[in-house]
Design a protein around this nucleic acid. Sequence first.
DNA 1: TTACACATGTAAAAGGTTACATGATTCG
DNA 2: CGAATCATGTAACCTTTTACATGTGTAA
Lengths: 186, 186
Amino acid sequence: MSLRFAVLSLLDIEPGSGYDLKRRFERSVHHFWSASHQQMYRELHKLHGEGLLDCVEEIQDGRPDKKVYSLTAAGRGALEAWVAKPAAAQKIRDPFLIQVFAGHHLPPAQMRAELQRHLSEHRDKLATYEAQNARFYRRPAEQQQKLWISHQPLLLGIETEKTWIRWAEQLLARLDAEIADRDTAG
Amino acid sequence: MSLRFAVLSLLDIEPGSGYDLKRRFERSVHHFWSASHQQMYRELHKLHGEGLLDCVEEIQDGRPDKKVYSLTAAGRGALEAWVAKPAAAQKIRDPFLIQVFAGHHLPPAQMRAELQRHLSEHRDKLATYEAQNARFYRRPAEQQQKLWISHQPLLLGIETEKTWIRWAEQLLARLDAEIADRDTAG
DNA sequence: TTACACATGTAAAAGGTTACATGATTCG
DNA sequence: CGAATCATGTAACCTTTTACATGTGTAA
């Protein structure tokens, strides 16, 4: 149910094709929603079928033609109605944390390596989000004012990544102590 | 794929029925995984069918009988093999943040009410996690030492909730300023 | 006597992932 | 010459949610 409103929200800001949308998901809303291109295309067809989107075929040269979708009045209505309704809480499902939970089955050195890998991914993520944030603050003041609330999820994304990184760094230190202990004991 | 290993991890600590498992998910791993009872029963049947779980019917009086599942040697092997493999990164999908992202469609006062509702849910969650954390530190020292790594996801859960609450409080303050501005201007 | 906790399931629908399929252009 | 980007799609599969279904014991 939520995917369609993520799509409508993005097309409400600016019309685009399935391909555009997929990239915009990755670039701008990836910290709170993700979807594959197949999901986009399916959702766009459905929304178009229900009269919530208009579709204009745009001929490009040097590139494949694309279908540019934009909200109809009904689409805007549906989005506004949805925004006013209470949203469900996030459901967290993190495979890596299951792994940590069952971590006693793994030698500390191997656990450490896995953690290190995830840590560097999270650092990359944080850097991406901070670049996005910087881009926002380079926009004209009136745009910043107009879009301030849309910008809030990114701020949460940044803080969440920082929290993750702090947690992982502490865990890493503890694993190192564990490994050192083993070496001394063995 | 991950649900089955969450189930195996829990049954590895202590055998139990589908019903038990559902409650243990809610009580002990809810900060990184959730599943309904239907998912449990289906997964238990599958795991049993694949020879990864043993099943013993336990007759109870005053209560319906229950099927108690425990890991077989193959089950333990599968869990160990899985733990050693790299885990996929978490995919975040938070409906409320879509709502915030499209928040300009909503009057600030209404946005504020929604945020307040989510905020109090997150405060409850944090209280639950902190109670769980306190319970952990009341266990005997040897158990704390043995289970320390399984306890780490909870620490992340606590920090993540605190981060969320801080973010929401700042947003709340900003919305209040916005509402005050409107009142003064109107 | 009503509601909640215990206990286990089936079935259908919705949502999401993975693999396959095509074909042009651009960059190294 | 090979890889990446642009652009759209089908099909099969897996996972998750929601609704339905049943029945006992206990506490307010």
